[in-house]
Design a protein around this nucleic acid. Sequence first.
DNA 1: CGCTGTCATACCCGGCAGGTATCACCGGAT
DNA 2: ATCCGGTGATACCTGCCGGGTATGACAGCG
Lengths: 282, 282
Amino acid sequence: MDTLETRELRYFVAVAEELHFGRAAERLGMAQPPLSRAIQQLERRLGVTLLERDRRGVALTAAGEVLLHEARAALDAATAAARRTRRAAQHGDRLVLATKAGASHELLRKLLDAYAAEPEAAEVEVLMCGIGEQARLLREGRADVALVHRPFDDLSGFDTQDLLTEGQVAVMPAGHPLAMRDSLSMAEAAGVPDLPIARWPRLDGSYPPGPGPEVKDQAQMAQLVALGLALIVIPASAYAWLWAEHAAVPVSDAPAVTTTLAWPAHSRSLPLARLVGVAARL
Amino acid sequence: MDTLETRELRYFVAVAEELHFGRAAERLGMAQPPLSRAIQQLERRLGVTLLERDRRGVALTAAGEVLLHEARAALDAATAAARRTRRAAQHGDRLVLATKAGASHELLRKLLDAYAAEPEAAEVEVLMCGIGEQARLLREGRADVALVHRPFDDLSGFDTQDLLTEGQVAVMPAGHPLAMRDSLSMAEAAGVPDLPIARWPRLDGSYPPGPGPEVKDQAQMAQLVALGLALIVIPASAYAWLWAEHAAVPVSDAPAVTTTLAWPAHSRSLPLARLVGVAARL
DNA sequence: CGCTGTCATACCCGGCAGGTATCACCGGAT
DNA sequence: ATCCGGTGATACCTGCCGGGTATGACAGCG
């Protein structure tokens, strides 16, 4: 039938996230009454009740929950369309590659060198971003391709090309008794009484429960470990940034980590295809 | 910056597909001048030339090409949002499963039975569709999940769960000399002088080149083979519809075919998760 | 029993989407 | 050469609808 306007979707997402017409209107830079009316119109057009107005606040219905997810995806697609079009016009074939700070230096170096050696290689701009942000950058059209790590990052909706699979190591102060061992189990790593495992933020930004300190980048981690305050379990290649005060011991039963190239599924860019081809031959 | 309106995207896609403002306007049910103006505004907002107006018709620029793809994806997402929301409101937890006519009867039967045996199983509506249409149904929000076949169908952008991998067989008239063989190679199957291989439409609806007749469904195929006019190579499980006049011989080096469950990557429906869980344990 | 905070209603206004008429331009037939 | 048909662009007008302000209805609460 009729396709929803992005304006309607934007309005609905704001209300669904705030669960409050006044605040949502403020966030949208408009007055509350037109927003109320717009949502009513949306509900009439869909023939669906999206919000339960229960004096004192608003709640999403099941259908509203569905629309919230779908609307976010549709809005991402629309903004990505604009961004990718602008980028295509301004920088022609340039590729933007998103990567986590501090991960897989050597692999990325190899990939970029191999790609640069290709005939007709496009410029590649490397975009450093925070942990777990690559997916958002891809979805919003800010990047063309990203270096991600399974099983940590969310790859749904992307095409992928695996590059390298590796085990994980436990990093601890060099002098620690366990540092002599050839390998550890997760249970052993988690059971060290004076060295709790440091905790990374999850995809949504919250931290898993546990006794260890909360960290948000590798510098913090390195510091904590060197000080003898925590132990960490990370992919073996992240080894590169270790200091003299650190020791690394393989953890035999930790899940393997795969470094993967990911890009939007429907992408048709020729330079991207070339980069993926190079990656596949690494 | 500012996010594109679906109206603008709709207009642009119409013009980009027709490469003709007049026809595009007609298709959109409006007059030509406002459409011209809308496209100009879109170009100004993006700061990008999308169309090369070369008296006598219109051509897409490289950036226009990019926007055409992105806009289609965004429009699909928007219409899918509307449809899925309506479905969620009307039929609650019902699942719509899209499948090719005539493929994988038994496997589907097993899957549906196993799912129905689950506690709190939702209703499942099976939607038969033409060859290669499943992806479109999923993208447009008409179906929640689809039974597809790798490597034939386009799975980009979907999450998947493989169900079954099988070889392919050559189907020919029962009396043919080759029908006695235990297995064939592709070269042998293709080289039978009096039995050219029938040709299927590709994803875009065109046919690959070759001497064999063009077919578009299994009934036509069965008929052609029984009449001794063609030979076909199909997944072993499609065997089910063979007539007495047919013989099937495994083709040793044909690519293996995997029957796979596919669904939109960002889907969060509980009944779907259950169905996938059941499928994984099959 | 007002007071406060919520969302909905009533009413008005201005901008912009869309329509009609027309222009500018080019290619080709005569 | 010249007119004609068909292209997209321009000019101008109009009505609708998106948005603003003022206010109402209603519930919880001190």
